[in-house]
Design a protein around this nucleic acid. Structure first.
Lengths: 209, 209
DNA sequence: GTCTATACACTGATAGAC
DNA sequence: GTCTATCAGTGTATAGAC
């Protein structure tokens, strides 16, 4: 009887521990990079013996790969905010809000992604060449349609996307610099003002308002 | 006679070797981060025995500190392009051009800076709190003056600066991602188009054109 | 599935001959 | 100022008891 339940229980334990380890790994990888992170420190943060990490993830690189892939999924989900919008004001406005919210809620994930890309994307190069490229192509066509319909100025769609990524992720990746210049970490009101500033400047910059 | 010349010669040798080592270190730190970089690899890239690095820079951290400080100086020099301009079109336009040129010519330096800030600026925290904060305060006042003079829209000066940094440095820090989406590294014409795009969107975004 | 002990490789740094 | 040899410390990964 209990024999038939054991597989499910094991899966639950695995899922729970993997999530715990991933959470700790994201934090440590963001703070130290791949080379600077140690399995020992990740284990300490997760509150597990170091050997358990190797039980769930055979190597440090496997664990890192998993963390980066999780972040990539979050980026893609935010992208949906841009679709099914009547025009750039709603679509790009919603995309900026979604990406700013991610920068606020998942700054470590954003940093790990930045770290990975900065170092030549050794782990997720295939994602860049497939999923991200496909997504980008689709949004370029969407922006070109908005331009053709006279809903925004004639801007280079690719460089608009780069600016959207840069402006929003900057608040996560360079959050420490911003907090230092601000004198303290951004408050709720600060984040609202930041989001409004980015939205206002970009929407006006593309001639949508 | 030759005795009096020796100190100069030694200084020249030191200067030359330090520059060689810094150049190699910038490349390796950018590609691997502080933790991932090894003195052995930096020595190999510089074409020197590892022990020589420790002769010129006592520890790995001393070498890293020097590399980050060099980059910081380049940032500050670019900032001068913004001053002594009659208005935002010339001032911010020139600043964008200068920063895009740095992203193109010193992508490794930009990455080391990004890496350092992303990880909490353990080495250059004092620069953030003194030099960068002072510089920022000065430019905020400059932008506020332009706004008061009706030369641009009423935008939040701090967030405009963040957007300038983000948009320009993105082409260095995320250059690999951009090259992948572009199908190849940016050409001269691509860089020109990128610079024009950033200038056009931001200058229109702040109501300066 | 969990954890202790350990093998094995590598790193930063130094000593000391040249 | 240059370079070989080497040490002490640490890292990843695993073996094996529980």
């Amino acid at each position: 009887m209990s024999e038939t339940l054991r597989p499910l229980r094991r899966n639950e334990i695995r899922q729970q521990n993997e999530a715990l380890i991933c959470q700790a790994a994201e934090k440590v990888f963001a703070e130290a990079g791949f080379g600077g992170a140690t399995m020992q420190l990740i284990a300490d943060v997760a509150g597990l013996p170091k050997a358990n990490l190797h039980y769930y993830f055979p190597t440090k690189e496997h664990l890192y790969r998993r963390v980066v892939r999780d972040i990539f999924e979050i980026w893609l989900q935010a992208a949906e905010a841009m679709d099914s919008a009547p025009g750039p004001v709603e679509g790009i406005g919603a995309y900026i809000e979604a990406k700013m919210e991610i920068s606020r809620r998942h700054p470590d994930g954003s940093k790990v992604w930045a770290y990975e890309v900065m170092h030549g994307a050794p782990v997720i190069q295939d994602y860049l060449e497939t999923t991200l490229r496909d997504w980008t192509s689709g949004r370029v066509r969407l922006i070109e349609r908005w331009i053709a319909e006279g809903k925004m100025a004639r801007v280079d769609p690719e460089h608009l996307l780069y600016m959207l990524w840069a402006a929003t992720q900057h608040y996560a990746d360079f959050g420490h610099q911003i907090a230092t210049l601000n004198g303290q970490p951004l408050t709720d009101a600060d984040w609202q003002r930041a989001t409004d500033s980015v939205k206002t400047m970009i929407l006006r910059g593309i001639g949508a308002v």
